[in-house]
Design a protein around this nucleic acid. Sequence first.
DNA 1: TCTGGGGTCCTAGGACCC
DNA 2: TCTGGGGTCCTAGGACCC
Length: 422
Amino acid sequence: MIAMVDCNSFYASCEQVFRPDLWGKPVVVLSNNDGCIIAANKEAKQLAHIPMFEAVYKIKHILIENKVTFFSSNYTLYGEMSQRVMNILETFSPSVEVYSIDEAFLDVKGLSYIDMRMYGFEIKERIYRYTGLPVGVGIAPTKVLAKLANRMAKKIPKHEHVYVMDTDAKRIAALEWADIGDIWGIGRKHVKRLQAIGVFKAIDFVKLPLAWVRKEMTVVGERLWKELRGESCLEFMAVPNPKKAIGTAKSFGQKLPDLGRIEEACAYYITEVAEVLRAQKSCATYIHVAVYTNYHSTIDKQYSNRITVTMPIPTNDTFALIAQARKALHHIYKPGFRYKKVAVNLTGLIPEHYVQGNLFEKRSKISDSNLMHTLDVLNRKFGKTTVSSAMIGTRVEEWELIKKERSPRYTTQWRELMKIGV
DNA sequence: TCTGGGGTCCTAGGACCC
DNA sequence: TCTGGGGTCCTAGGACCC
């Protein structure tokens, strides 16, 4: 059996933990740049028609009329709260797969002597008591079924956020209950095609011939089909695989016509991704750089372009990566446009001790790992850009993201601790 | 004026190798 | 008349997830 634990309206719940005055009230969280809605608690979902991913400026009046509190996203806070939840889960099973910032699978196959429903409630209650965050727990024989059990735990009130699918009769009942689009891994496109041939419920899907599923939905669909029938196909990954790509692509706070600011933003993003790269002890072979104008705009001239460069020797040296990214950017930048976004992506990631040198470059010239290590230590201790490349410049506020309504970073900054009383 | 960001996996087709 | 067969690597595009 596998348990699936996931936090309810995670971002909104994190905000509410530190704001008792908002308990029971509608709360939404906005995307980077305060562009659209990415999370809403159940009060906000009930209250008004608030479509997820809707542009904020279009529905701002609805939010204000309904007294919905909105926050800019505060990933520092969410990441740290997530860590707390995962730490608690580690005490429930020796084998935990952290699937996303707010979800994890627990391998519970060795716990057959325990009452699974009690176990689920214990998880739910302990996490709430220790963190203030509400969670749902679904327990079932496969991952896809555990996801489904988790959904039932939350959607069917009598289950009180804990549901155990431990018999075949319960599995069949679940498949009869679930719409095809409720199944993890079946997205919009497939829902349309399935409905077109009369498949509306999960039970209809598992009755389809496997050959059809394989042909129309590839091996991905085949796995889902088998998992829903109780045959486990998705590997349990207690140890995460190293990332195959590390990238970032953020919109600017304002549109930028000049190469200078874009170069600075690009250098900054490279600095960020290079830190992640070193944290997983990898080196990158390729850098992809792309620029975009605002494709929503009807008045701006549109342009976007991308380029891939190969590093002479795979590296995780921030300065070497910035130098190459800068050259790449010069290739694709064209004057006369108002740019909205620059994206950088590192791929061809290999473990740092497997890096193959080449005859013509001296390795020490390409990378100085002591320097990088010192940089990481300093920035971790004293703050993000305590020591960084001068390419980043000093005009960060001219391109950085807009976050007007960000809550305090209660758990990671002394100056932003929660205050009680007057 | 204002519309997110970071990922994974799979397949087909082209280029190339022996 | 008749022009092989087995393979790898890479990229772009599609679909999906949170």
